[in-house]
Amino acid sequence: MKVDVRITGIGGQGILTMAKILGSALVREGKYATLIQNFDTFISGGESTADMRVSDQPIEYPVFEKADITVFMAKKTYPRYINKVKEGGIVVINSDVIDEEPKGNFTVIKVPASSIARKLGNVRASNMVMLGALVAKLSLANPEVIKELIREKFKDKADLNIKAFEEGMKIGRGI
């Protein structure tokens, strides 16, 4: 089983953090993941994209053009990558920042990630909300291990982020 995941947005949104937590969770459980980071430059606010191939088998070639699941964190990269969603794929958008109505042969999950995170106490945790929605659609990843990693990463700020992740999971599962 092999799934291509793309997380795209702008620098400073914590895209790498999301991708690293997901990748770490997978390898911790004996699964495989590769992550290619693409960013314009080091300018904050520049485009930032993480291309992840995840699998239960070792991965040789990590490059892909069209993704099975694409997570849109910002408006800026939306036009470029909305055309690179696989037929029958999944699109997860932060509906607080993207007002477009994605149209195509794919499933759309709208996540009001910014407002959920803000309600929880910190808008910066919106990446964890989005991660929750993504993980809900990615059977290879174990949510419990993700939470473990969030705890390790955020230490005393872990509770808020875990809550954000769980809220995202609920939306992803359609609860």
Binding site: A19, K20, G23, V27, Y32, L35, I36, Q37, I59, P62
Partner: peptide, 9 residues
Amino acid sequence: KMTILLMEE
């Protein structure tokens, strides 16, 4: 650049 930036196990 790819082998430097690529993350994996």
